[in-house]
Amino acid sequence: MARLPTSPRKSTRHGARALLALAAVFLGSPGWSADLATILASTAVEPPARIGFREERHNPMFKEPMVLAGRLEYLDSGTLRKVVEIPFEEDILVQANRVIVTRDGKTRKLSLNRSRALKTILGAIEAVLAGNQERLEESFLCDVAATDDGWSLHMTPLSKGVAKRLSGLQVTGNEQAVTSIRINLPNDEWHLMRIGDELPK
């Protein structure tokens, strides 16, 4: 089929994955229970909110994970921001269905609509923010487990299309806070974001 591919760079280079990390910002409020409804009832966050993060990004090209650190901000309903401070500076704003990336003074605007996987994940994040279990379960199979120091929420995409690009999400927390979010991608690629203001840089 004679088809001109368009811009895979923009979409994949600045794609969905980093946005997944923004999920962590919503999960700053604790509310421990091994029950999903109880967890969701306690994860709702009132904007504005801000918290630090330390993220490890693993993939087959890396011999060791790339480590990022900075802060996550929940500015308003539907408006999220990830500010990377280490090892370089980058500002990623998610607003009105768009991602605005500012790097070295240059801004690029990207639409969220193109990636079904990303849209599903952001839908889940909004559901978590709103404590909306029904909406979360529209897209994910949710499995809650109690851990030694809190709880763990495993989310597996229901859509086969999404599952090709996103293996699952794992959110952990304790009585006080959501402590981490792990994004598992196919082909041995995963990102682990620890959330808190007292993390080592």
């Binding site: 994949t12 280079r13 990004r57 993939n59 990623i92």
Partner: peptide, 25 residues
């Protein structure tokens, strides 16, 4: 590296491994 700090996925990894200059794009 900065691209991989933002995005990910098999397509992007394969592209960068083969064409780090992104001349293709």
């Amino acid at each position: 590296l900065r691209d991989l700090a933002f995005g990910g996925g098999a397509d992007l990894l394969a592209l960068i491994a083969r064409d780090p200059y992104l001349a293709t794009i």
